[in-house]
Design a protein around this nucleic acid. Structure first.
Lengths: 250, 250
DNA sequence: GGTAATGCGATTGTATTCAATATAGCGAAG
DNA sequence: CTTCGCTATATTGAATACAATCGCATTACC
């Protein structure tokens, strides 16, 4: 964790507790993200036994938030738990890669279409909701950040930005069900791709602006087809690179 | 602890504590299922504010397992929580119905294909794993129970059996990722269908045997197409019945 | 010597208690 | 009369303490 130089056990004694932004994320959320990150990056190998006490000691908090984080990660499919038997790190779903991409293709095409339809509605009404503008602004920032990361050669930032972009589109679609599904799948995709961080995404990042433009203009069909093709490119790219023995047959 | 109607400290005085089946399900799991059931059946209306203390009092347990159950339900999309602001029952995802069915179609076609491919492998190897036989036997029971329920006119059993069948097929596919996704979607579909329990499934139940036969025989393509068509029938049936204003366009 | 019962340690599940935060209600100023 | 600010209470988040359960090693017994 090189980017956390400050001691995180310090209780932020100075400075306002929270102005308007909930900047101080809850410890539960923090450890959840941290553990998931460790799993995705391979710091926690599949099958590793996880004890709550060890995590509690590691992060300096009690077991209660650790438990909730583990339950959330269990729901996300990163750990598996049995009553009174503890939790273990799940196996990387490499066998499911092709199917996960297939589901994601249908899912993201749906979110893009919904987002474009909502944008068209907002445009015709002339009175966009501010939540729409908020998400739209975030997406612009994400696209800029990705371009800058590519220019500066810091490609390690792309995977996270990629997820944020796709989740942002799901936000524009204003469908909590689809967003939740995408979040679950995106985690797995990220997990699959983690070992090939560099070669990924750079070529497909530019497609994001095209997709977002179609959404903005309310071109429903174009947004749907564009997103479907985008995910499909990612799928074929992954399969050609890793040659997963999954069903490319028939 | 003002009053404890039933004495939960009693330790099942008669009978062995647990033979081989973990019959005594954990309270956490029990309340989770109970709350989800209440939400699906409409006993808890959308937008209802849920307080942990009330649930703890209702079920006679402390807040800790209640919290974990709520977190799990949050991950499943049935409740929404904000830090320090409590949880509320989510809205029925009626607007997402069409998209959910679309995703489910891709998902279940994938699980059916995987299941059939696995069956073909097991057949050619001549040495099926016992986990496969276990799930396969459960599926037979489920199909029989469904037929019997239809004969006896107790259609209220069909929705649960329907979910169990589809989850069973996912089990045959031996993909925890896809199973988790299907479980999440199935809950939503069940939620959507809850108001129309009777008219549902009876006509499509017979398709299950055809699909399972294709899986058993290892006819991969037939299984995939059969399951896809099956889900598609369900989709059009739902849309024609409820006429959701979702995108039937293009 | 092998097998099954049993005690022990480790770990998870639950209860209780305290701290942090948000929301509702009230009062005062404009 | 409206609106802004503040306090008061209710509710969630976290920490500590206790109980229940599982796995394993030891040991008694056949």
């Amino acid at each position: 964790m090189p980017h956390l130089p400050d001691d995180r056990t310090v209780r932020s004694p100075a400075g306002p507790p929270s102005l308007n932004a909930p900047a101080a994320i809850a410890p539960k959320q923090r450890v959840q993200d941290e553990i998931r990150r460790d799993i995705i990056l391979g710091n926690l190998a599949a099958g590793t036994r996880i004890t709550e006490a060890a995590l509690a000691a590691k992060y300096g908090i009690s077991r209660v938030p650790i438990r909730e984080a583990l339950r959330a990660l269990e729901a996300e499919g990163f750990v598996e738990s049995r009553p009174y038997a503890g939790s273990t790190v799940s196996a990387i779903p490499v066998d499911d890669a092709d199917d996960l991409f297939a589901v994601r293709e249908a899912l993201e095409a749906a979110t893009a279409r919904r987002a474009a339809r909502r944008a068209a509605t907002q445009l015709s009404a002339g009175k966009p909701e501010d939540s729409w503008w908020h998400t739209r602004r975030e997406l612009a920032h994400i696209l800029d950040a990705g371009d800058e990361a590519i220019e500066q050669g810091s490609l390690e930032l792309l995977p996270e930005l990629n997820i944020q972009f796709h989740l942002g589109v799901a936000e524009l679609a204003a469908s909590s069900s689809l967003t939740a599904l995408l979040r679950q799948i995106a985690g797995k995709i990220e997990w699959l791709y983690a070992s090939d961080v560099d070669a990924r995404g750079k070529q497909s990042w530019s497609e994001h602006r095209t997709i977002l433009a179609a959404i903005d203009a309310g071109r429903i069909e174009e947004a749907e087809r564009g997103m479907g093709a985008h995910v499909h490119h990612s799928r074929t790219g992954y399969l050609s690179r890793f040659a997963a023995g999954s069903a490319a047959s028939s």
